[in-house]
């Protein structure tokens, strides 16, 4: 279970959001909404521990995430704006690296994964030469072999075609049914079952509280 208590995020002396509280239990999908610049990506960077909050704490299984990063990171998959895919390596080499470093205990055949994300036939081309959507698919392929319960996905659908979006939605539903937790942002309309699906709308702080 992931819990945020009284989270406040400040960027350049501007308060992006203050006193944000929410909790995510197994089997839930949380869609974080809000206009550009409201602080969605900043919230996600706090949730994964890349930056630290101005005030407030984040707990994973009742443990503060900053106190034991390694065990939190064993349970968390983050896909951000930057894909983390090495442009000079091929799709297969990138996936091999992700598999061995992040989920070495999962037994799998990477060719199956390449088939699932539609990259068979492109496996020997450096990712720099693939299209934007295909590069995105290389990064998203990690979701298929991740054994982490918590997925944090920042705009996962960017540059992905309609059929690809459908496939990923199904994967998200499957993950939630298995007891996984997902936090994502997207500007697309999702067709996810409502019993799994929660929305969190970020709002600007009240007028008097916008600056610290």
């Amino acid at each position: 279970m992931l819990e945020c208590k009284n989270l406040t995020c400040v960027r350049e002396e501007r308060v992006l959001f203050n006193n944000l509280n929410f909790a995510l239990s197994p089997g839930e999908i949380l869609h974080v909404e809000g206009p550009n610049g409201i602080g969605k990506t900043s919230l996600f960077r706090l949730l994964v521990g890349l930056s630290s909050p101005y005030s407030g704490d984040i707990y994973w299984q009742q443990q503060n995430i900053m106190s034991d990063r390694e065990s939190y990171y064993q349970n968390m998959l983050y896909l951000g704006h930057k894909s983390g895919v090495k442009p000079e390596l091929t799709a297969l080499e990138n996936l091999q690296f992700f598999h061995r470093l992040y989920n070495p205990s999962v037994e799998l055949d990477l060719w199956d994964i390449l088939t699932l994300v539609g990259l068979v036939g492109y496996e020997n081309i450096p990712t720099a030469q693939l299209s934007a959507g295909q590069q995105r698919r290389v990064a998203l392929a990690r979701m298929w072999f991740s054994d982490c319960p918590l997925w944090i996905l920042d705009e996962p659908f960017t540059a992905i075609d309609k059929s690809g979006v459908k496939v990923i939605e199904n994967l998200l539903i499957k993950h939630a049914h298995k007891g996984g937790m997902i936090i994502l942002t997207t500007h697309q309309d999702l067709s996810l079952p409502t019993d799994l699906y929660k929305k969190l709308t970020l709002q600007k702080p009240a007028i008097g509280e916008q600056y610290v």
Partner: peptide
């Protein structure tokens, strides 16, 4: 390219 972020989030 974001690999650094990912490396910082490795278990």
């Amino acid at each position: 390219d974001g690999s650094l972020e990912q490396m910082m989030l490795a278990p």
